[in-house]
């Protein structure tokens, strides 16, 4: 299986030019909680095959924006579209069914089930004994799981029975394998490396790239700018409820990003 470096996918995405329709479009989304306006008109496009990093200080509105995309919150005004269709009235579950997957920090895996059972949970392939008695096709699950884990190059021990004993990074791998297999259109990774060892961070970055290579649009939220510059194709900086800066990862530096995150204007930074 080929591992795609991020340049490849970006080139693919850019070379498709205007024909590459965004999978997710966010237009002028506003949200207030009581007197506090948390989102003050957010505009953003997400293209299939890209990793778009969302950075910003605590309270900038990243989490609130994410919760609008995943259907948890409803915008006061503005619109979010998936493949050109409005997602305004959808429940979180309906949003998921339409292909928006969130990889949570706490990872939503059932510890007592096997890796394969977790990937296929809720969508098990079935067979019938003598054409009558239905049963879960464990062999198909095993084979698919093995090739998926191989594809994202996760070194999950083949003998591991349940996910209970997997490390944080390996658990991410399972969640991401699930998103790849079910062909998620948009995957939100909310601080996926927050609780991981250094070695495992590298793996998660690899998984995010693999996910983008599989054709999903990935929104990656993080605090570690070194990691962000490594994983992202584009970076959106949020400050006080709006996106103040949108750039490709190659055209920016940590210093610039920190300035935008702390409220410097374009002029001040150019000077």
């Amino acid at each position: 299986m080929v591992f795609y470096p991020k340049e490849t996918t970006l080139i693919v995405a850019l070379s498709m030019g205007p024909s590459m329709k965004p999978v997710l479009t966010i237009r002028n989304v506003r949200k207030s909680f009581g007197p506090v306006e948390v989102l003050r008109g957010v505009d953003l496009d997400l293209v299939p095959g890209e990793v778009l990093a969302l950075v910003g200080d605590n309270g900038a509105g990243k989490t609130t924006l994410i919760k609008h995309i995943s259907g948890v919150y409803r915008a006061d005004s503005g619109e979010i579209q998936l493949d050109g269709k409005s997602m305004d009235l959808l429940s979180p579950r309906q949003v998921r069914e339409r292909g928006v997957e969130t990889v949570y920090q706490d990872l939503a895996l059932a510890d007592d089930l096997t890796v394969g059972a977790n990937i296929f949970l809720g969508r098990e392939p079935m067979r019938r004994l003598f054409g009558v008695l239905p049963y879960i096709d464990e062999r198909a699950i095993r084979n698919e799981t093995a090739s998926l884990l191989d594809r994202i190059k996760s070194h999950i021990p083949a003998k591991s029975k349940t996910v209970a004993r997997l490390s944080g990074g390996q658990r991410q791998a399972v969640a991401i394998a699930r998103a790849i297999y079910w062909k998620a259109k948009v995957v939100i990774m909310d601080e996926p490396t927050a609780a991981l060892a250094v070695m495992e961070r590298e793996n998660v970055i690899k998984y995010a790239r693999e996910l983008a290579a599989s054709g999903a649009g990935v929104i990656y939220i993080g605090h570690n700018l070194v990691e962000i510059l490594e994983v992202a194709d584009r970076i959106a900086v949020m400050f006080r409820g709006t996106i103040v800066h949108l750039t490709t990862a190659g055209e920016t530096t940590q210093e610039k990003l920190i300035k935008y995150m702390t409220g410097y204007t374009d002029k001040e930074i150019a000077a």
């Binding site: 059932a110 007592d112 089930l113 059972a117 949970l121 809720g122």
Partner: peptide
């Protein structure tokens, strides 16, 4: 499978 999944998480 779902019974075990519910008990697990």
């Amino acid at each position: 499978r779902y019974l075990y999944a519910i008990g697990s998480n």
